[in-house]
Design a protein around this nucleic acid. Structure first.
Length: 265
DNA sequence: GCCCAGGGAATCG
DNA sequence: CGATTCCATGGG
């Protein structure tokens, strides 16, 4: 059975293609097939209507509704952050983006892999990471548990061709599985504490830490600065982020990032 | 401060 | 076509 729901102002395509996640692919019929944690889904948008294939309302309510942040009031948030032509332009282009509520461990690994890397190659490394270490479940591979990675060797990790990032994944897995870094407490911890915790992991600097806080802990004030956003800031916001944007910097960042990468800004 | 580490696709000139 | 760059960070 399929579950259908109407969600105004939401763009499935922009949400899944704006670089915040790496396990979704567009199918030929326009639907997206992807994996989050140990669940897989095919979903399609037609107008304002979303169709979640082969699941019921229960599975939708228990997981996917939250994953796509469909209760988020992005209209109200944009009313608070708007105030200049660049943000207007970006929002006009991709204002239907939602910040996914991804698993923090999955976000941590994904954005360690993302450093100094391009999106097609990031997807390839993440796919091999899951195929090699994840549990197989009805034709797909779940995201591997930190304990599995912590007990792996660097030689085993070399098979996913992550390069110098392999040792970072190993250190992350060790610190998470031992409890030295508690990912589940990050959402309630003050954001500065979260930053410190995350950056105690080898290979996690300010950029990756902000990504984990934003995409894995839904801290929407987290503001990852990659080379694209750096260019946007230098050119359009030399005085820094406008004050009213700061509490929602991560959402603004996603609009600006997707817009500038698509030549809109 | 500098350079380099794996790696390969995308983009630039 | 080759060169540079890419959702960076750490160690020498």
């Amino acid at each position: 059975m399929d579950f259908k729901i109407s969600v105004p102002f939401f763009s499935l395509e922009d949400t899944l293609s704006c670089g915040q996640c790496f396990r979704w692919e567009k199918a030929e019929n326009g639907a997206f097939r992807g994996i989050a944690g140990d669940r897989s889904l095919t979903v399609r948008q037609q107008g304002e209507e979303l169709t979640f294939f082969d699941i019921g309302e229960e599975e939708f309510a228990a997981f996917w509704k939250g994953y796509f942040d469909l209760d988020g009031d992005y209209q109200t948030i944009f009313q608070r952050i708007r105030g200049d032509e660049f943000m207007e332009k970006a929002h006009r282009f991709c204002g239907g983006i939602h910040i996914l509520r991804q698993d923090p461990w999955e976000a941590l690994c994904s954005f360690i892999i993302s450093q100094n890397n391009n999106i097609p190659r990031i997807k390839g490394i993440v796919a091999r990471f899951c195929e090699y270490f994840g549990k197989k479940k009805d034709g797909f591979y779940a995201f591997p548990e930190p304990e599995v990675i912590a007990s792996a060797s660097l030689e085993e990790l070399s098979s996913i061709r992550a390069g110098f990032r392999a040792k970072y994944l190993l250190d992350a897995a060790k610190k998470v599985s031992s409890g030295e870094v508690s990912l589940c407490s990050l959402e309630t911890l003050p954001i500065e504490e979260g930053r410190k915790q995350l950056q105690s992991i080898l290979g996690v600097g300010p950029k990756v830490a902000e990504c984990v806080l934003l995409y894995g802990c839904h801290k929407v004030e987290a503001f990852p600065i990659d080379t694209w956003i750096k260019k946007v800031m230098d050119r359009y916001y030399p005085q820094g982020l406008p004050e009213q944007v700061k509490p929602y910097g991560g959402i603004a960042q996603q609009y600006l990032f997707h817009a500038v990468r698509n030549g809109i800004l």
